[in-house]
Nucleic acid binder design. Structure first.
Lengths: 149, 149
DNA sequence: CAGTATCCCTTTTGATACTG
DNA sequence: CAGTATCAAAAGGGATACTG
């Protein structure tokens, strides 16, 4: 689980009969590594929290608040390994460790922001689509079971 | 599992002592729904494949190729529910079902593209960071176990 | 404080078999 | 063809206990 590079990505074998897409299938293989990081349950929160400031472990733990100690550690290690976060250890008696975004991390943060903005702008449409879908799915069921209520 | 709106998102409770971040913590709750869709192992591939053309179920299944029948169905249902993909059933003898992006789906596709581009542009840096991290992690271990090689 | 190690439960995913 | 249903395997993630 610690090694993001060795996982099998079944669909990485390129087939060139597929000229319509503009993303290279092979590019997806690389993209996946980052997407998995972005998509990670906690990574996004940590990146957002670390925007323009350093934070200590416990400080992050409280800020994210739903996260377990284990998952925060795992998340931070992944981000550090990918060069998105820098970890600084101060060799003092009560250990002090600070986390901050690297330039690469800041740059990713900006890109993710555009995705976040898109989501905010289209949230209404998505909610509407969901309600619509759920309603229709419900009436489909009524066709099979007309006498429920 | 079919209901993306009811899942618990532990970190959604907003604490306002946190003025540095520019994303609203509550926004993350909504954002998560979409991010989960974007981040999904197969969604991205399907959206990419559906760019500017209709495709049938089996056609998609072969194009994605690593995907199981079940996962493709689940993925398509999610995308359909979110209003990103339109599903059209032709009531003919061998069933014919076509999938295509909605305008909303096209719009998301464009935003995701910027993320894909970012990844392609920074892939080298990330790989380098990983090698660096792994190398350092390896030598840390040698400090504990000096006689290995 | 800032972790690591372990156990265990939940969710996700894949394989297989069956159907309109 | 385009699914649904079911079951088993695997990964993800939390709680707890321990450590430099």
């Amino acid at each position: 689980m610690e090694d993001g590079t060795s996982k099998a990505l079944g669909y990485c074998t390129g087939t060139e009969d597929d000229q319509a897409r503009q993303w290279d299938v092979r590019a997806d293989c690389d993209v996946r590594q980052i997407l998995d990081r972005v998509a990670d349950k906690w990574s996004l929160l940590v990146i957002a929290l670390l925007d323009r400031r350093k934070m200590r472990f416990t400080q992050l733990r409280r800020a994210v608040d739903g996260v377990s100690q284990r998952m925060l550690t795992v998340t931070l290690r992944h981000l550090e390994r990918d060069g998105l976060v820098r970890r600084t250890v101060y060799p003092v008696v009560p250990p002090r460790v600070e986390y901050e975004l690297t330039p690469l991390g800041i740059s990713l943060h900006e890109v993710i922001t555009s995705l976040v903005i898109w989501t905010e702008e289209h949230q209404q449409e998505i909610s509407a689509a969901r309600s619509d879908y759920d309603e229709k799915a419900a009436s489909e069921e009524h066709e099979l079971q007309p006498a429920v209520g």
